[in-house]
Structures are given as C-alpha cells and as structure tokens.
Design a binder for these strands. Structure first.
Length: 490
RNA sequence: GGUCCUGUGGCCGAGCGGCUAGGCAGAGGUCUGCAAAACCUCGUACAGCGGUUCGAAUCCGCUCGGGACCUCCA
C-alpha cells in the first residue's frame, strides 16, 4: 500500500490546517511526544494522549516509515507553584513522604509503563529522562544566552521573550499576541527577577533546602520547565524534526516555549508538524490532577470508583477512545462505555467469523473499495471513528457472507482478512480479550450444564429453565445454540 | 477580562455547502421447547433567530448553553 503513503494529511496546529505529510527525509519520521511527570499516578486523561499518539505511531509504521519515537519522562524540573518560589515538584513530595526523589520517580515510572502496556501501547524508541540530560540542557541554556535571547538574574537564567519576539513570533502556535499576553498577566510576587512577566526560566537557582539540584555556570540549581523537551528532542531527532505531539493543555505555554527555545538556540524552527490531542473529560470537565476530577486506570479496570457502574477492560476503553477523533474532547460515562463494550465484541465476532468464512467464485462486494475506505479514513488526519465505522461495514458484509446472502472469493477473503486484522490489531492497537480461566468453575459448569442437558433431553423444561435462571442470577449467562451450549460470566 | 474551541436523533460520536457515517439503546423479523445470544431490516437529527446561496448541520452575524488556555497539568 505504498501508494497510500503519500496521501496522509495531518492537522498541523501551527497552521491550523490539514497538510499533506511529507517527512524531512523520505522514509523516515522523527516523532516526539511530551511524556508524563512521574510524581504521581497517571490518570486516564494522560492515558488518552499516549494512546492517541500510539495510534499515530502504529499507523506511520504500517505505512512503512522507519520511525524514531521519543517520549520523555519528566523526573525533575517542574515547578510546584509560584507561592512555593520555584520548588521542584518531585522534591516537594519527597519531603512529605520521606523518600528519596528518585525512589518516587522509579515507583511512578514503573506504574506508568505497566498502565500503558495494559492499554496495549507500544514502547517508544527512546524514553529519555530529564535528570539524565542535565548537561544537554545546560548547553542549550548557554547557547540561547550566547545568542542574546536570555539573561542572568540572581543565578537564574530567563528567556527574553520580548527580545525574541522582535524578529520572531512568540505566540505563533497558540495564536496569541504578545501585547494581549502582557495585558493578561497577573502581577505575582517573586517575579522581580524577570524583566518581563512573560519571560520564563531556563535555569533556576536552587534554595538550600532544595533536594534535586545540579551545578551550572550560573548557580547550583535546576533546569526550567520547558527546557528538557527542547534539549532531548534536539539531541535525538535533530534541530528540525517532523512531528511533535502532546496534550492540548501543553500548547501554551509549554510548546510555545519549546519553539522559542529551539529557534533561539539553533536559528531553526524545531518542528514541522505540531499535533495536539484533546482532553478526556469527566462530568463534562477536563480530567486533571490539580482539580481532583480524575479517574485512575486501576479504578476504571476494577470498577472501584464512584463514577462508573462497573469495571471495564482496558482494551474496551481503548476502543472507546478510538471511536472519537483525537482532536475532539471525549466524555467518560458508563452508558458510553457499555455501548463501546458491546460494539467491540461485535467487531471481534466479525473478525472471528472472517477466519473461517466460506468462499465462492466471486465476491458480491468490491473488497478493494472496503480496504480503500480504511486507508482513506486514516489518511484524513487519523480519523479512527470513520475507520471503525468502515470496519463495521466490513463486519456486516462478513456476516452476510456467513449467512449466505452475500459471497466472497478466496482471494478477496484473504485480502480482507489481512487488512481487517492490520487495521484492528496493528493500527488501532486492539487485542482479543481473553476470558480469565478458572478451572474449578469450569468443572462445576461442565457438571451443571450436563445435568441441565439431561433435563432438556427429557423435556423437563422447568428444571432446565430453573438452572438457567439461577445461573443468570449468579451472573453466568447460558446460551443454547445449534452448535451446543455455551456460557460466559457477565 | 483576553484568546480559542464547541452545541448533531434516547445516549455516545463522525461529517463541516448538495449524495444526509458508525456504535449503543428502541421497534419488527429469522432462529429457538421457551428464553437469551447471534444475524437481518428499520432512524432524515443537526441549540435558537436572522442572513448569504439554486441549495446549509456545514459559510456569515447575533442570542443562549458547554468547554479549554491565559498558573503545574496529557
């Protein structure tokens, strides 16, 4: 499907339009995604962004690109808040819990990896940490300073936004004007070190009680909040690279600052295509750590929460997320998840039937058209909801072949199977859900169903139905079909 | 307050000038001892009011709702 490769268009936040994707170097893609801050558990909103970009990564791979996918781990450097005078987030929590900062980082990093693997995310090619790239960050500060876009103040180094804006456009990504930004700035304490309230820290002088700090030409301190992504993306993907992704809430100021830092240090705009994934909402509001409006992956999976009526398999959740476009907000609710759960099993049923579908001399539908529709959907800015709709069209066709109202040739069947599997499993990243095996329950059920079958053979419907009803109350569903009796836990 | 996004049938969610997705729920049917499941068939909805147009859910204006960013956040 190499011909489809040149038809991918991506919505570029920088231009505000869909653009045909052309990598800097034919056949290769550099992809950078802002990763998590590992000072607490990732919540589902975080997960949505990473799942969205996992899908992007998977589709680019499917198109045959060689991709270097870099996603950082922020284990230092983010400020707690202004009142804390620039205290490092990780250090703050460490003191509260009497743990080493790196102990916390380790704990939450492991949790992050475990969580994403439950959602069947592929690992990135490189997952660099901020603390592992202090030298690169110091070098970048120095470069920006040498180029005249930063100044030192009390051992801290700040980016000079107004100076940068004279020849560049600070605000080009978030579509803001510097005048509006200045007028909208609140006057806060502790900003007297800065020439302008818009200036942001590249390097912060650390207070004595600060735990995570490193020596630098300016002070013993720690890097600014936006610097790590610039330093690490430059190191691993180059001064200019293809795609930078992240959550919508990082657009300003984080990504705006990254553009400024990159441009100020190298003279080149660092990113060709900016992609932003939209927020996951809960009760109509953005999921957020700070407001407490969150749901953790484990709470979702176990059902141990006040928001949803039961637990959901992470793959069902992934499917649910894929039913919405990555640039739209998506609201979490039991009703919506229940619908996704049923839809998902319908899709899986279709795929299973396809495996052993009987073939005829010719096909009653144009299978190539169906497959083209998959590519067209994905090539239109990764439109997974349309892709899923088209997959359901394919399922309907498969069911019709299965019940004899349509036909498919052997060749088409093999083609369809290959592509449906590719889009469902490789690209959407879904997997078949295995029912957990419970051997003692299996044995009991074998016996119970044997007894029920005996009753049925004797046309003792009362007994047969009673067994079925009691099992149903115990959340075990019994289904009689021509092929025999099956059961499943609900 | 500033900047921007958004409002689609009972629910979720695509589409973004004409051909009017998809899933769930609901209705009818096939199958079945009955049921369930499964499968098939069925839905003309686009916040309100104006305007542009041969034609608008889709463009423009206003009104009313919801949300994001402007402060750490995916």
């Amino acid at each position: 499907m190499a011909n489809k490769k040149n038809e991918l268009s991506i919505y570029n936040s920088l231009s505000g339009e869909k653009e045909i994707f052309k990598p800097l170097k034919e056949g290769f893609v550099g992809l950078y995604v802002c990763g998590p801050t590992v000072y607490s558990y990732v919540h589902l909103g975080n997960c949505r962004t990473f799942i969205s970009f996992d899908m992007v990564y998977r589709y680019l791979k499917h198109l045959g690109y060689t991709i270097r996918y870099v996603r950082n781990i922020t284990d230092a450097g983010h400020l707690e808040n202004d009142a804390e005078e620039g205290e490092d987030k990780i250090a703050k929590k460490a003191r509260l819990e009497q743990l080493e900062p790196m102990e916390i980082v380790q704990q939450y990093t492991i949790n992050f990896h475990e969580t994403l693997s439950k959602f069947n995310n592929l690992p990135p090619s490189i997952e660099p940490t901020a603390t592992g790239h202090i030298i690169e960050q110091i070098e970048m500060v120095q470069k920006i300073k040498d180029n005249g876009f930063a100044y030192e103040s009390n051992g801290s180094v700040y980016f000079d936004v107004e100076k940068y804006n004279k020849k560049n456009y600070y605000g080009e990504l978030s579509k803001r004007k510097i005048e509006d930004l200045i007028s909208g700035t609140r006057s806060l304490d502790g900003q007297n070190e800065k020439k302008s309230p818009l200036d942001f820290a590249l390097w912060k002088n650390a207070k004595p009680e600060h735990i995570m700090k490193w020596p630098s030409p300016w002070s013993v301190g720690f890097p600014g909040w936006h610097l790590e992504c610039s330093a690490m993306s430059t190191k691993y993907l180059g001064e200019e690279f293809d795609i930078h992704g992240g959550g919508m809430d990082l657009k300003f100021p984080h990504h705006e600052c990254e553009i400024a830092q990159g441009t100020a240090s190298t003279g080149k705009k660092p990113v060709r295509y900016w992609m932003h994934a939209n927020m996951l909402t809960l009760n109509g509001k953005k999921m957020s750590k700070s407001t407490g409006n969150t749901l953790l992956p484990n709470e979702l999976i176990s059902g141990d929460n006040d928001v949803l009526e039961k637990g959901y398999n992470p793959i069902v959740v992934r499917f649910f997320m894929m039913q919405a476009h990555y640039r739209s907000t998506l609201d979490f609710s039991s009703e919506a998840l229940n619908a996704a759960e049923k839809g998902f099993s319908r899709l899986m049923d279709g795929i299973n039937i396809l495996k052993n579908l009987k073939t005829s001399d010719q096909s009653s539908q144009d299978v190539k058209d169906i497959i083209d529709s998959f590519y067209d959907a994905m090539n239109d800015d990764f439109n997974t909801p349309i892709l899923i709709a088209n997959l359901f069209d394919a399922v309907k066709y498969i069911q019709n072949v299965n019940n004899g109202t349509s036909t498919i040739s052997k060749q088409d069947k093999e083609l369809l199977e290959k592509e449906v599997n590719a889009f469902t499993f490789d690209i959407l990243g879904l997997t078949e859900i295995q029912n957990e095996q419970n051997s003692s329950l299996d044995k009991v059920m074998e016996l119970v169903l044997k007894m029920r079958q005996k009753a049925r053979d004797e046309k003792d419907w009362d007994t047969a139905d009673e067994i079925r009803d009691v099992l149903n109350d115990a959340r075990i569903e019994v289904k009689d079909s021509k092929e025999g009796v099956t059961w499943m836990t609900k």
